[in-house]
Simulated scan of single mutants.
Amino acid sequence: MPGGRLSHQDRLDIAAGLADGFGYAEIARQLQRPTSTISREVNRNGGAGGYRADHAHYATASRARRRQPDASRTASTSRPSDPRAAYVERFAEMMVDGGLPRMASRVLALLYTSDSRTLTAADLVRELRVSPASISKAIGYLERVGMVHREPDPERRLQHYVIAEDVWLKAWEISARTNFNWAETAAEGVDLVGRDTPAGERLTQMAEFFQRLSEDMSGGAGFHDCLSVLAVLWKAERHLSPDELATALGWPVERVTDAVDYAVKAAASGAAGE
């Protein structure tokens, strides 16, 4: 029952939801449970990539038996849950909803919220409680899309993983590229079934929608330059002159001023449209 202990059937439903790619929040809604309950259950039993319902049910029962001799202890001796770890999971869930793979999202969220500038694979395995293979696969994806890069340890045979400075620009580009792929795939479907068929009409609408969305997000060179300037300003956390921006970006000053003009015109256009 909602609010009580998870049953074996609940755990089977959680495993099925993970296999279907559902997030913790969606699984929680289906089971009428708090999202934190689902997150804690999965992370305690192998993570999203290694969760097994039968193993989780057995392990939970085993832990309960081991705790029975200490049942006389007061509730005040129990350790509270880690709010930072819970925040990392919520942060990751947001990125999953935005289209990033789940484990890549968890790795990126942990890197972004860590006090340390870099984390090793061992750090990620320990903090996320998943297998080294899961971390390797997630890091491989993040490196391919340019959101994370690695730095060798000068003293030990270790690799340190670092978030790219333009990580959110990369995320935007991935989203724009995804929309373009949707448009291309829909257009191929139109050629296959014919524009005048019911399926062709639906696919045509889909292709046109995602094509417009991709074009709006891509925005051309001026748009990308504008984002790059904003990224430098955000990192600097202070006003920078055009010369300082040009030095930081390695651009001619004229390119910086063109990007700023683009931003001003875009803002004015948006204000006029309201």
Rank of each mutant, 00 (worst) to 15 (best):
A71V: 12
T113I: 05
F210E: 00
R212H: 05
A104G: 05
Q211Y: 02
I163H: 03
S136Q: 10
P132I: 12
G222K: 00
G23I: 01
N181R: 06
E155K: 11
D225G: 00
R52A: 10
D97C: 05
L192T: 07
T113W: 06
R44S: 09
D20R: 15
T113C: 11
E165L: 09
T113D: 15
I174V: 05
E89W: 05
R44M: 07
A61H: 13
T74D: 15
T197N: 06
A28N: 15
P198D: 01
S7H: 11
M94Y: 04
Q32G: 09
A75K: 15
S228H: 00
A267L: 12
R5T: 13
E184I: 02
G200M: 01
T204Y: 00
S78E: 13
Q205H: 14
Y87P: 01
A176E: 05
E155V: 08
A266Q: 07
E93K: 03
A263F: 11
Y58N: 12
T60Q: 14
G219C: 03
L233C: 05
P83T: 06
G49P: 00
E151A: 14
G4H: 11
R157N: 08
E208P: 00
D82W: 09
V264G: 01
L12P: 03
M206W: 00
D13W: 11
P132C: 08
G270N: 14
S62K: 13
M217P: 01
Y262P: 01
R79M: 05
L142R: 12
T77A: 10
M147W: 13
W172H: 15
D166W: 01
D10E: 10
G4A: 12
A236P: 08
